[in-house]
Computed example of a mutant assay.
Amino acid sequence: MIRATLFLALAAGLAALPAAADDEFLSPPAADALRAGRQATIEAKLRPQASAKAVTVEEVGDADSFGRNVKWLGLMSGYVALSTDCTPAPGDPVDPNCVTLNPAPAFTPFNQADLAVVTLPGRSTHSLICHWQTPIISVAYSNATGARQPYRFQALASYRIESEVLQGLNDPNTGDPYNGAIELALGSINDAGYLEDGDFFTRQYTQSRTCIAGLVSKRALVEQYGLTDAQARRFFREPITIRMSIRGNARMVEAANINFGTRFTGD
């Protein structure tokens, strides 16, 4: 019964998450990539003096950014605290990023929005925005309920990417309007297990995620989000605002400090 309840709670939490970024990229079939590479090599040998033609997705995987320099686009950091008591010390202000934990063994869902914001000027990048995301999280688990209990901790950062180009457009998969923004989540921290009565321990989690397909790219805007090629090009020519939120769930947690730091790069 406990396992079933835990599974249902986790499934409900995951269902509410925004679409995942970073793992969306799929390479072309290997046979197509090899064929394209061989053809390009043959053409280069036959016409060595000819100006280099544009590479294809089949050759290099990402033709839009091929050969371009990396551009530094800024960084952001979001912080959330979980505590059994968020009452500030006398004279101190209330911490809006402190979440009061529900009494054990209840779950505590949390969703802290707009913890950090950056706005990139138009034409800051050519065809993609990449991410270097590093969470640094400390969690204390405790069981004083008098019985064995399952514990769980889940945290992730989500990014709302806003652009005037997305106004008036709809998601081709659902038909829902974008209303000027798309929201994406990067890889989360998930931990679960069991605590015997009287158990107490702490854990620290950190794992960097760096750009694969990118947080958002020209190719993804066309193939996944339904923009035309012209709209996707204009997307990167206009200002882009990125907002960070941190969400998750905690059970049998006594306290936690959650920080996600993310640096952005482009091409």
Rank of each mutant, 00 (worst) to 15 (best):
A4Q: 13
T5A: 13
A9K: 11
A16I: 03
A21D: 07
A21H: 10
D22P: 04
D23S: 10
E24G: 14
E24W: 11
F25S: 13
F25P: 03
P28Q: 09
P29T: 00
P29N: 04
A31F: 08
A31Y: 07
A33M: 14
L34I: 12
G37S: 11
Q39S: 09
T41A: 15
T41P: 00
A44M: 12
A44W: 05
K45W: 11
R47Y: 15
P48M: 05
Q49K: 14
K53V: 09
A54T: 12
G67T: 03
G67S: 08
N69G: 11
L73A: 03
G74C: 08
M76W: 05
G78N: 11
V80T: 10
A81D: 12
S83Y: 03
T84E: 14
D85I: 00
A89F: 09
A89M: 06
D92G: 01
V94N: 07
V94T: 13
V94F: 07
P96L: 00
N97Y: 06
C98E: 05
C98V: 02
V99E: 05
T100V: 05
L101K: 13
A104P: 05
A106M: 11
A106I: 04
A106Q: 15
T108W: 07
F110H: 08
L115E: 02
P121W: 03
P121N: 06
R123F: 09
S124E: 04
L128T: 05
W132L: 14
T134A: 09
P135C: 14
I136A: 14
I137S: 11
S138D: 11
S138R: 15
S142C: 01
Q149F: 08
Q149L: 07
Q149M: 14
Q149A: 11
F153E: 00
F153A: 06
A157D: 06
S158Q: 02
R160M: 09
R160I: 07
I161C: 02
E162C: 03
E162T: 14
V165K: 05
N170Q: 12
P172G: 04
T174D: 10
Y178I: 00
N179K: 00
G180H: 04
A181K: 01
I182Q: 06
G193V: 03
G193H: 09
L195W: 03
G198I: 06
T202N: 12
Q204N: 14
T206V: 05
Q207C: 05
Q207M: 04
S208V: 12
I212A: 13
G214D: 04
G214I: 07
V216C: 00
S217Y: 07
K218M: 08
L221I: 01
Q224T: 10
G226N: 04
L227G: 02
L227P: 01
A232S: 06
R233E: 15
R237M: 10
I242T: 08
R243C: 00
R243F: 05
R247D: 02
G248Y: 02
R251H: 04
M252E: 15
A255I: 00
N257E: 12
N257I: 12
F260P: 02
F260R: 14
R263H: 12
R263M: 10
T265G: 13
T265W: 03
D267F: 02
D267E: 03
